[in-house]
Amino acid sequence: MTEITSASYIVLGVSLFMLLNSAALTVYAERRIAAFIQYRVGPNRVGPLGLLQPIADVVKLILKEDVTPRNSYRTLHTIAPLIPVVTALMTVAVIPFGEGIFVTNINASVLYLLAIASLGVYGVTLAGWSSNSKYSLLGGLRAAAQMISYELPLGMAIASVILFVGSLSIVDVAAAQENWWFIFLNPIGAIIFIIAAFAESNRTPFDIVEAEQELVGGFHTEYSSMKFGMFFLAEYMHVVINSMLITTFFFGSYHLPFAGYWLPEMSPLLKGLLDVSVFVAKTGFFVFFFIWIRWTIPRFKFNQVMTLGWAKLLPMSIVNFMAIAAVLYFLF
């Protein structure tokens, strides 16, 4: 357990700022990469290379009329967009960005992470339920069913990492990967985790929530103005955060590959800079990966999503967990 100093609050402030900015940047990156993949130009008018486009978007959203449909549950309709944003922002508290660079090191941070991630479901469900629109209701229900279903393989994939670490603190998980990243030791777990992370953040190929052809806008059909903007912001923050989690749990967090074997001793400042830049680079790659997948693969049908989650990923993740436990127990 480390002491909470003013340094923790500096990390907190910086990471919050970075997360919000990276969400905006991800929106821009998504539009540019989509355009690149589809042989278009994409947004290039606002600012140099169109880099100020996200700011223009936010200003536009703020200046729009906020419509709440008739007979909707007004209070819930207003609360619902807050939940995904708050839960997305709250996850940064436990993620280590470098050796000794984290906001707080609680001894059950993996459980904290899972708990906060499950709370995100409420925003989606309440949005769908309170809108008094059939499309919203169906979209919200489907989203909720999908998100809770994929939480199980996600949890089991994390548990298979915990077997190697023997601690529920994410700081320990990151530190344990100095030599061997867990993708090398636990590749099946890594694949399951990545698939489940895609499903948790409602991204293609799991964006049945927003299948325009059948559900219009899904749970945010009846949201306009900045209330819609909140869901939008939350989606991109979840992309960034899930990239961080994939990096942290399976791709060595802030370590270079096999760093313990060859990386020379460095001054703390240099080491800190290296750690943070390695972490940011890996996260950036996975954000790109999320976008790349979205514009490459078509979405599943809802029953296919549920079958994949319950009948394939869940048994696979449990068998993987037990196999790793057996190997660790009897061979090492």
């Binding site: 357990m1 480390t2 909470i4 923790s8 609050y9 907190l12 919050l16 944003v85 708050v86 922002l89 709250m90 940064v92 508290a93 906001v103 707080t104 090191n105 609680i106 904290y112």
Partner: peptide
């Protein structure tokens, strides 16, 4: 060690 989380919740 949970205090920053509370602060973060307030800020968010």
């Amino acid at each position: 060690s949970y205090v920053p989380i509370l602060v973060l919740f307030g800020v968010a």
